[in-house]
């Protein structure tokens, strides 16, 4: 499974959707991910990829970790995985 597929699976589970209905361009809001589901997604990402996601629910818009769409999350997670390998 690619990073994208794994993240889609995580978000799909929280959004009660089938993975095929979660497109990379979709925003979390469009998928119906609320603040509680969001912190559960972040937790699942950390567990799946064994990374530490810099995320604080108090200012989700102003951080290094871009959660605007599935695609931006994938890029950010790939960045975290790469940073861990160096």
């Amino acid at each position: 499974m690619s990073v994208t597929d794994k993240i889609i699976a995580i978000v799909a589970e929280q959004a009660f959707l089938e993975p095929k209905d979660v497109k990379p361009a979709a925003t979390l809001e469009e998928l119906g991910i609320d603040s509680m589901a969001l912190v559960e997604c972040i937790f699942a990402i950390e567990e799946t990829f064994d990374v530490q996601v810099p995320f604080n629910a108090n200012d989700p818009d102003t951080q290094q970790f871009d959660i605007s769409t599935i695609q931006t999350i994938v890029l950010a997670v790939e960045g975290l995985i790469a940073a861990q390998k160096t």
Binding site: V39, I42, F43, F55, N56, A57, N58, D59
Partner: peptide
């Protein structure tokens, strides 16, 4: 920590820079 609502650097109630 798990809830992601804690501030790593200080408690700043009502401040524009508050972060938890």
């Amino acid at each position: 920590e798990g809830l992601r609502v804690m501030s790593p650097d200080g408690c700043r109630p009502f401040c524009g820079t508050r972060n938890g």
